[in-house]
Write a protein that binds this DNA or RNA. Structure first.
Lengths: 350, 350
DNA sequence: ATTTTTTCCGTTACCGTGCACGAATCGTAA
DNA sequence: TTACGATTCGTGCACGGTAACGGAAAAAAT
């Protein structure tokens, strides 16, 4: 308890017969301290269990420190917007400890714009960086620069298998696919399922849905080896085509009644679903976008699996702040967020 | 941004032609300030957008402030233990803002012990109190005393319909029953379900399972009006009887294959379930106790609905701290936690 | 008008750290 | 021994706010 008066630098100075200036030098590993004094101070610090007073420290130190958060520009209704509240909470947390959080946005389909955002962040000489590694190569280059300058960084969403990162906050992607399959089939015998996929020209971006699909396929293979998985491709840039494709597919495969989608755009198929309420499709998608939630509420979508992007960013900023201010290395390096199962009956509380 | 130098009380003193002492008095509503000066200071504070520096404040203020958390003694493996990590996180948060969190425990079946804990807390002259209102009457009396002393309090878990509380953090209990029914039936036609209930001599305690049962019954009535709900009573204090009761019931009701339980003790029936793996019961319970989780992993329990008791306490302590330190009144007074649906495939990430 | 009381306000000494400045001490070479 | 640079260390102010102390001004009482 705090019954005993808190130990201060002055106490240590007195105990060692040195001055607070010297104690301060030891505490910050600054040069100009003899080995003997250094050892003496360290010993007393340990014996007395000294803990610095952060208020006093923050008050006396007037360097502006900033954490850079580099992420795709949040378009309204899209995935990255979900991380917003988490960033705000992180900002508040960091602010209480004297650190500003600044965001650097880029176009998630434009590698150059990503590079620009990174450089912009670097120019601020940040005390730490949070980013999802959207473009593999550019991220590697950027992270190397950070390492040169001793700037810690934390990955969110996905991570790179480099080992310089301080922490990672994301979802267990493979398992999310596995979970998706278990919900879709509800563990009851299943012969055919449809997976709606998105046709896209690759840009060297990391694509978490690949991993997720593996988990899905594995679950199906393990539990229902005879189940057939149909792949249906749609193109979000040609919304007018989608309905036709779906109509066509489900007309020729009338026995398929379970539908999954591995990205956040399950809402794309709701118009189709709404035209076939009698079919009672079982539909599982990902992420609690507003459009997805409304499909959930109306009963078109059965379940959504949500990954708390906000918690990811909050966790990342908090971990970075703790490291910068207190020197605390995160006890867990790879942090997996819970996968929330949302149905129409619990969605409104998320 | 913080480009412009932060406004300090010295700035305000200069602007108003008064001294920092007076400004300080105004800021804390202390007496001894003329109306004229008061108004002048308030105006300048507003004009310049002054925000106090909490570090300096915390540093200069040497009063020990404490938040009292009054809750049942956490027995290992029982419900209240789940709130522990949340209290710890809250403690850390509060600590960063110069507030200590102290717990006061009592026996959850003993009203006198609850009263003693309350008085003990009161004797510390706390700056705020967090408590689940376990005993209605005693809580009312206690809360009245708090109000007399202007001590804010926050309810967790359940709330009383008094209106003196600062905030409430809990789960939507009725809806949790509704959700439970929807998961148990998976929206497919159902004729019979079993609800395992606990026989207990009432002690004037609040019993959230009543409300939950209502939600459950309503869902069933709305969706499957012909479904029969069997009530099976067991007594946790006579564990040796439980198996016999269950065997007996399910022998005479062989068509019942869906089981729900509204308290946190679904684990009580796993021995029975394990002896009948061929029946493939669909089982839904509440709360992620260690014992429940292991039943989930082994496949005996289908789903658990968890209510994040830790988040409740964290939220409560945070809200109280924000109120005490910054005077912030919570933007949302009644805060409902998400109801997490846990299955064997996502449970390990909670 | 003078004294007493009350109201109002400025001054000042902190709180615990950070850091710049300059002084003391040490080692080494002339 | 003296001189001189390099180390090592102590001193003191600053950070922004708090609150006790006591003095000045205003109001009330004599």
């Amino acid at each position: 308890m705090d019954k005993t008066q808190k130990i201060t630098i002055k106490d240590i100075a007195r105990q060692t017969g040195l001055s607070k200036g010297t104690v301060d030098r030891v505490l910050h590993n600054r040069e100009g301290v003899s080995k003997k004094s250094y050892a003496k101070v360290m010993k007393v610090i340990k014996d007395l269990g000294y803990e610095p007073n952060i208020y006093a420290s923050l008050l006396a130190k007037h360097t502006e420190r900033v954490i850079a958060v580099i992420l795709p520009r949040c378009k309204s209704g899209e995935f990255w917007e979900l991380s917003d509240p988490g960033i705000e909470r992180g900002k508040e947390f960091a602010h209480n400890l004297g650190i500003n959080v600044r965001r650097f946005n880029y176009d998630q389909y434009d590698e150059n714009s990503f590079r620009r955002a990174c450089n912009e962040a670097l120019a601020m000489d940040p005390a730490g960086v949070v980013l999802p590694p959207m473009f593999r190569n550019e991220t590697m280059i950027f992270v190397d620069k950070l390492r040169d300058r001793d700037i810690p960084h934390v990955y969110v969403d996905t991570k790179l298998e480099t080992n310089g990162y301080l922490a990672y906050f994301g979802m267990p992607i493979y398992q999310s696919g596995y979970l998706c399959a278990s919900i879709l089939t509800d563990d009851t015998p299943t012969n055919e399922v449809a997976v709606i996929r998105i046709q896209r020209d690759k840009h060297g971006q990391s694509d978490p849905t690949i991993n997720r699909r593996e988990g899905f396929n594995d679950y199906i293979a393990e539990h229902f080896p005879n189940c057939r998985i149909h792949n249906v491709f749609i193109n979000p840039n040609r919304p007018e085509e989608i309905d036709g494709i779906l109509e066509e597919f489900f007309r020729s495969n009338p026995r398929v009644s379970q539908i999954a989608m591995f990205n956040s755009r399950i809402y794309l198929i709701t118009p189709f679903l709404e035209r076939h309420p009698e079919k009672k499709y079982r539909v599982v998608g990902f992420d609690n976008l507003a459009a997805n939630l409304s499909a959930l509420r109306s009963g078109m979508v059965t379940s959504l699996i949500a990954q708390r992007p906000d918690e990811q960013f909050y966790g990342a900023i908090k971990a970075l702040t703790d490291f910068i201010v207190f020197g605390k290395v995160p006890s867990i390096r790879d942090n997996f967020m819970p996968m929330d199962i949302l149905t129409r009956y619990n969605a409104e509380y998320y």
